[in-house]
Structure formats: structure tokens, C-alpha cells
Amino acid sequence: MPKRIVSVSIGSSKRNSRAEFSLEGLPDTFVLERIGTDGSWEKAIELVRKLDGQVDAFGLGGADLYVWAGKRRYTFRDSARMAAAAEKSPMVDGSGLKHTLERNAVRLLDPQIRWKGKKVLVPSALDRFGLAEALDAAGAEVIYGDFIYALGLPFPIRQLAVLRLCAYILMPLITQLPFKWLYPTGEKQEKQILDWRQKYFQWADVIAGDWHFMRRYMPQDMRGKVILTNTTTAEDLEFMRARGVKTLITTTPRISGRSFGTNVMEAFVVALAGKYPLSEGEYLEYIEKLGLKPQVTELS
């Protein structure tokens, strides 16, 4: 029987997919599925309860269970309800893999991107603190856009220390809010908003992080820009080409025409390891073993 990994996502069902594959050197076949519930937490919880014990690992998609700031971890109330429904099969949200895989990707991409002095927009940094720290360490000029894109406030953060301090103060409150107030879910993921927030895309050389924030606010003219993200479909690539995006770099591999989210790939690693939780060192070990490296696609 193949090992089955299912990502239950609060996102749009239009992005549902399924892929079956095997990797050289591994005895098992793997099935990766992504099932969207169009913004319904109740449908997601019901689906998790139905599949619990029948899958090797769950991914929690379209939302975060945890976010990190430095060494502190914060848990979203809505996501915790969904995770509690998985009593037999482990559920991960990708935060463990983000912290290691994306940090590693910045290091590996330095010969190509030359991060020092590069202008980088991270629309949502608190769900990718490892990426934020790696870009800062590499010497990039970064705008962390959490206030801008999650809260709609015109306050760009330009220093990692300020981002960390804001997280310490605000995250205990923010994680108790309905997740849909903070992040596009369901059909909102398909809607574009073209407003004052476009100017930060125009400022940047590289836009890095969450694809749905990028797609939602991306201006029509993206000529010469580099996108560093994951969870992209063939339709997303055409969306980027139509706007003139120069290069797409995904931190997760493309399988059956799309790059799956970090929650799916973390669930894949957990299923492969046969245990949970995994330490940061164990994640790094599997990243090395599986050869998970950034994939570069030239679009124009």
C-alpha cells in the first residue's frame, strides 16, 4: 500500500490535486493529495475526522497552526481546533520545514541572486521567520509586509528586530482572531486587489514568501522581477508570465506539474520518517537525503 499524505486546506477547492510517485532509493510509493474546503473550517474538521487513522500524515493547508518569532511559538486558535481533530494521524502545517528548508534555500541561492543589497519584499514574514532571518543575515534590503498585507496598514517594517518586537507584542492577540481576517481563504484566494500596496512590489527586485499574498496584490507589470515561493500550479505560472515575471524559484519540488505547499512536503517527510515530531536536525537530514533544493524556472 502506498503511503498517503493528505493536505486538508481552508483554501479554494479549485486548486485540488493528487499525485502518486516514487523516489529512487525509497521502497515506498507515495500519494500526495490536496483537498480544499473553500474557507469552511467545519468542513475541514469533518474531513480530518473522517480520514484520521487512514492517512500516514495530514498537512494543514491554507492556514498556519504555528508561527515563530525568535524562539517563541504562537498557536492560531482556529487552526488548533482543526489539529485537535487528528487524534491518530499526525498533522503538520509546514512551519517545521519552512524554518529549515527556506533558510537553506536562501543560502543555496546566494551565488545566483547575490542577496547583499538586493531589494526583497516579504509580504508575510511572521509565518516564515526562518526566511526572514536568512535574508537579513545574507545582507538583503528587506521590507517585511505583515502590517501592509495582513492588516492593511501602511507600515513597512525594515528591520528584523522591529519585526520580532512587534510579534512579541501583537501575536498573543492576533492568533486569537478569526484566521480569515488575516489571510485570504476560499474564493478570496482568486480575487485580486490592485491598490496602494502595489508600490512595494514595484520597489522590490525579489518577492519572497507566501504565494497567495503575492497573487492577491501583484501589479500588472512585473517585468524583471524574481518570485521565490511554493504552492504554484501551471495556471499560476501563466499568471506570472502574463505579468512579465522574469524568474520563478520554488523551494519545494514540482510534482505532476505543480509545487506542493510546505505543509504537504513536511507531512511527506513525517510519513517517510514514520515518527513525529522531528527535530530541526532531522528535518535538515531529510532535506539533504531527498535532495530538496530550490527549483528555478525562467518565465521570460
Rank of each mutant, 00 (worst) to 15 (best):
K71C: 02
R72I: 00
R73E: 14
Y74A: 07
Y74F: 15
T75C: 12
T75R: 14
F76A: 05
F76M: 07
D78G: 05
S79D: 01
S79L: 02
A80L: 12
A80G: 02
A80S: 15
A80Q: 14
R81W: 09
R81P: 03
R81T: 06
A83P: 03
A84P: 01
A84N: 11
A86W: 07
A86R: 06
A86P: 01
E87T: 14
K88N: 09
S89M: 04
V92L: 08
D93F: 03
D93M: 00
D93E: 02
D93Q: 00
G94Y: 04
G94V: 06
S95F: 01
S95L: 09
G96K: 08
L97Y: 09
L97C: 05
L97V: 06
L97W: 06
K98Y: 08
H99C: 03
H99F: 13
H99R: 15
L101Q: 12
L101H: 09
L101T: 10
R103C: 03
N104V: 04
N104S: 11
A105Q: 11
A105T: 13
V106K: 01
V106F: 02
V106Y: 03
R107G: 03
L109M: 13
L109F: 09
D110V: 11
D110G: 09
Q112F: 14
I113Q: 06
I113N: 09
R114A: 12
R114C: 05
W115P: 08
W115H: 12
W115V: 09
K116C: 06
K116Y: 06
K116M: 07
G117F: 13
K118C: 14
K119P: 01
K119T: 08
V120L: 08
L121P: 11
V122Q: 09
V122H: 05
V122Y: 02
V122K: 11
V122T: 10
P123V: 06
P123K: 12
A125L: 02
A125Q: 04
A125S: 13
L126T: 12
L126Y: 13
L126F: 14
D127W: 01
D127F: 01
D127M: 03
R128T: 02
F129C: 05
F129Q: 04
G130A: 03
G130Q: 04
L131M: 10
A132Q: 07
A132S: 14
E133T: 15
E133A: 15
A134T: 08
L135Y: 07
L135F: 09
D136R: 15
D136N: 15
D136K: 15
A137Q: 15
A137E: 15
A138E: 13
G139Y: 08
G139Q: 10
A140P: 03
E141N: 13
E141K: 15
I143Q: 10
I143N: 08
I143W: 08
Y144G: 01
Y144L: 10
D146V: 12
F147C: 02
F147E: 13
I148D: 02
I148T: 05
I148S: 02
I148L: 11
Y149M: 01
Y149I: 00
Y149W: 05
A150W: 02
A150E: 13
L151E: 06
P154R: 11
P154G: 12
F155E: 00
F155H: 03
P156S: 07
I157A: 02
R158V: 10
L160N: 07
A161D: 13
A161W: 12
A161F: 06
V162Y: 05
R164T: 10
L165W: 12
C166F: 14
I169H: 11
I169E: 07
I169N: 04
L170D: 01
L170K: 01
M171C: 05
